[in-house]
Design a binder for these strands. Structure first.
Lengths: 135, 135
DNA sequence: TATTGTTATACTCTATAACTATA
DNA sequence: TATAGTTATAGAGTATAACAATA
């Protein structure tokens, strides 16, 4: 998730946080989803999604609906209010959505990812292994 | 602060977090600094820096030293261990540092910032003001 | 047995407010 | 009065582990 201070402040004014907005974004594009599906899409634990959806329900962006065939599962669904806000976000300014959700897709990022293992190997060689055990 | 999951995981293996690494980065380039200076540089509260420095002291990356002239202030100083780790990070792979600390400096980012106010005005017009009071 | 989601617990990062020590 | 830093308190986001309900 790519985020900066301006973005966080902007979302705050709308009653959202970056992570909660990612959930809404997923729902807008994929439709009603189980929490498990959302967790996998966000590379985050099921527990984390429980908390995010709790917040979105409390602020009226989504509801939890019964899954038609799997009684273990829940379908997180956008409310009209949530749909409206996300619709505007997506339509009015594609750049906003792109920057918020797509992470770095530039050349620079590709270079970074490609080179990361090398850097880490270098760094690890200079860090005392016993120190690293502290966390 | 620009961060993604890969980066967080990478720093974690070194015994660091993104925010703590930002503190070390500042110290590497500016030398021993008061917590107030660090807070301003990071656009973060003094309280936040207290917590970050607490963590860095506990893991041996920095020490708190007396300020030579101002007895209210503290000079946060890199330990040899901290200097070594940050030196490698800076020298071996400039991209790492760039991506970690410079935020987006691309054209795309400039466009985003320029257009942000417009997007927000659009979005706000579609959000019920009473709902926003919830947070 | 495996999966979905919850509760329990804990850590990091962040903020504001009240306070102490010092300037 | 103003500044540097801490303690107190709070909220968001994240994780693992144990568990219940269901598949």
């Amino acid at each position: 998730m790519l985020v900066n201070a301006d973005m966080t402040a902007s979302l705050g004014r709308l009653g959202l946080t970056a992570s909660r907005t990612t959930v809404l974004w997923h729902l807008l594009h994929r439709g009603p989803s189980t929490q498990k599906t959302i967790a996998d899409a966000m590379s985050v634990s099921a527990r984390t999604v429980t908390g995010l959806v709790d917040g979105l329900v409390a602020t009226g962006f989504v509801t939890r609906e019964a899954h038609p065939t799997d009684r273990r599962a829940i379908l997180v669904t956008l409310t009209p209010h949530g749909t409206e806000v996300m619709g505007v976000m997506a339509e009015q300014h594609p750049q906003f959505a792109h920057l918020l959700f797509d992470d770095l897709s530039s050349e620079t990022y590709a270079q970074f990812v490609a080179g990361l293992d090398h850097v880490l190997a270098q760094l690890r060689a200079h860090v005392d292994p016993t120190d690293r055990e502290h966390r």
